[in-house]
Write a protein that binds this DNA or RNA. Structure first.
Length: 562
RNA sequence: GCACUCGUAGCUCAGUAGGAUAGAGCGCUCCCCUCCUAAGGGAGAGGCCGGGGGUUCGAUUCCCUUCGGGUGCACCA
């Protein structure tokens, strides 16, 4: 039940204004001493030709008090409403089940999410974390709302990158061992090739030659290419498992090699391809630079491939929405691609394509972190460091814990993921070991710790009964604030989907944990009075459900003990 | 040069389809474990919401302008 609807109806009965308009004006006061909901009357002043204060007091006098709304105050131009707390507590807690937060508003709709997309045979480093973690969270957010979700890992499995690695392999394969951990040796070869290239630029030709062989379908080269893809994926999957990422398709760049002619044909048929500086391009409106489709060397390019991928996704998924979780530095590229798709005659789909940008990860000097600059920290390194630290803390705090390694993994990984999802995606992030390994305050471990406390209480309690709860035992400030938060959860998930912003959920979870921790500190949950205990235990259980469901959406596991 | 983006407490950030005294965390100073894990809670110090205009009853939020950081701007992805 939505109190805003109830209030809008009541107010609408008094003033002659559209109920939906009234509902939009209703807000939540800055603090609960000013009520639970407020209706500012300033906007009505012009229309009704009265001062806001007079409007407020007139409405205030006529409002009828009901079971849900027990008090109205007029403060300045505001009408402050106080809801019946006992009903709030009852309605909220009764609505919480194990699937709380899920809905079916996305039923029958398909959303395609393009995320992670690492380049084959390059180290999976901190720079890849954001797309993977944000995309993974969006995947689960849309799932929770009932959408049919298609997660696509558009692998960078073609072009000069892999070709360099293959060229290096051909030159130096005898110097490395590929039996144990082949991806490590492959990475070393990639780095070595890039280094050597700086001194001897002519070796780039070797890579070009590899690419030509690949394009011609040379069997030995292609087999080598396939092998490198398979060992790369094997190593990426370890990370994906760790953070609970799923993909429904790994169709990468190579997959579209034979599908770009169609793009070019459509563009030619529509007379959209223009010769410009030796290249063939699609002109863009609004002073936007043109979208290059064929280079002056006659080869296809990034945009061509993305357009082929879009056509394929339209044909195969008939998506209602396609989102691309890719760094903010590619904003222009996606604008061009989506505009081109529109010009090609796919306005309906182009309108539903959205680039979800995110900020860069910078090192302590404020410089971009990347595999070429050599300042990259691999994800494996980061996760290992975090897991190691959690294990150390567990040894200190709870050395008798039975599955220490498993819990340390959940906590360490959770810390990294939560750290990345706690802030607005668009902000640049300065990589700081101290911050990423901080386990207190607004962090993943804090969330897990709060959950563990709820479970610990539930384990320790005796004579637990959740039928016949006396809701009047939960009317203290701390309980009410916590329950109000619990009530918000389904809306929070919806709004995180509307804005494609997982941080809305992480911020919400922090608030909830803070509310509950305050409650926990103020009130003895396990206590002598059985009815009080049962009521408080129910609240505790429901907080646990929401934290667990919320963290799961972010890709973070919740241990039962830590 | 043009475009996009960010600028809120010492640091990292919430808050912005305009609303009542601007909120957290980290760090700093105190206080709270005879009571479910102190990876917790409470109190305090710390702010002309980058600057200047404008729109409005009301602007951190919208518009213009200016300064500062970042990113992109034709054949890499």
């Amino acid at each position: 039940m939505d109190y805003k609807d109830v209030l809008a109806q009541k107010i609408g009965n008094i003033v002659n204004i559209d109920i939906n308009e009234i509902k939009e004006y209703i807000e939540i006061p800055p603090n609960s001493e000013l009520g639970d909901y407020a209706f500012p009357c300033f906007k009505l002043a012009k229309e009704l030709k009265k001062s806001p204060q007079i409007i407020a007091s007139e409405i205030g006098k006529k409002i009828n008090i009901s079971d849900d709304i027990e008090k109205v105050d007029v403060v300045g131009g505001y009408l402050n409403f106080y809801i019946n707390k006992k009903n709030l507590v009852k309605n909220t807690l009764e609505s919480i089940t194990n699937t709380y937060g899920q809905s079916n508003i996305g039923e029958g709709k398909t959303v395609v999410i393009d995320y992670s997309a690492p380049n084959i045979a390059k180290p999976f480093h901190i720079g890849h974390l954001r797309s993977t973690v944000i995309g993974g969270a969006l995947y689960k957010i849309y799932k929770a709302l009932g959408y049919n979700v298609v997660g696509i890992n558009h692998l960078g499995d073609w072009g000069m990158g892999v070709s360099k690695t293959i060229a290096g392999y051909e030159m130096w394969k005898d110097e490395y061992d590929f039996s144990e951990n082949p991806i490590n040796s492959i990475l070393k070869i990639y780095v070595r090739f890039n280094k050597l290239e700086k001194e001897e630029p002519e070796i780039t030709d070797k890579a070009r030659n590899v690419l030509q062989r690949l394009e011609a379908g040379d069997k030995d080269t292609t087999d080598l290419w396939k092998w490198i893809i398979s060992i790369s994926l094997e190593s990426y999957n370890k990370i994906y498992d760790l953070i609970g990422c799923k993909f429904d398709s790994y169709n990468g760049e190579a997959f579209y090699n034979d599908k770009m002619d169609r793009v070019i044909k459509i563009l030619e048929d529509k007379n959209l391809l223009v010769d410009s500086e030796g290249a063939r391009v699609v002109m863009m409106p609004d002073n936007m630079p043109p979208c290059i489709i064929i280079t002056s060397a006659g080869t296809t390019i990034y945009a061509t491939r993305d357009l082929a991928a879009l056509l394929y996704r339209i044909d195969n998924y008939n998506f209602d929405k396609a989102i691309y979780v890719v760094g903010a530095e590619q904003t222009l590229h996606f604008k061009q691609v989506f505009k081109t798709l529109e010009l090609m005659g796919y306005e309906k789909y182009a309108k539903n394509c959205e680039h979800i940008p995110f900020g860069l990860i910078l090192d302590e000097n404020g410089e971009k972190i990347g595999s070429r600059k050599g300042n990259a920290i691999t994800l494996e390194e980061i996760f290992n460091e975090a897991i190691e630290k959690s294990l150390k803390i567990i040894e200190e705090k709870n050395s008798s814990l039975e599955n220490k390694e498993e819990v340390a993994k959940m906590v360490g990984v959770g810390a990294i993921i939560f750290n990345d999802l706690a802030n607005n995606r668009i902000k640049d992030e300065i990589f700081d070991w101290k911050q990423i390994l901080n386990f207190s305050g607004e962090t993943g471990p804090y969330m897990q710790y709060t959950y563990v406390r709820t479970q610990s209480i539930l384990r320790n309690a005796k004579n637990v009964k959740f039928d016949n709860i006396d809701y009047s035992k939960l009317l203290d400030n701390e309980a009410i604030e916590t329950i109000k938060k619990l009530k918000e959860f389904p809306e929070v998930i919806k709004s995180s989907a509307d804005k494609n912003e997982p941080s809305i959920i992480s911020r919400y979870l922090i608030d909830l944990a803070q509310c509950f921790s305050r409650f926990y500190n103020e009130h003895q949950i396990i206590c002598d009075d059985e009815t009080t205990q049962n009521a408080r235990l129910l609240l505790t259980k429901d907080v646990g459900i929401v934290i667990k469901n919320g963290l799961a959406i972010l890709g973070i596991e919740t241990p039962e003990k830590m």
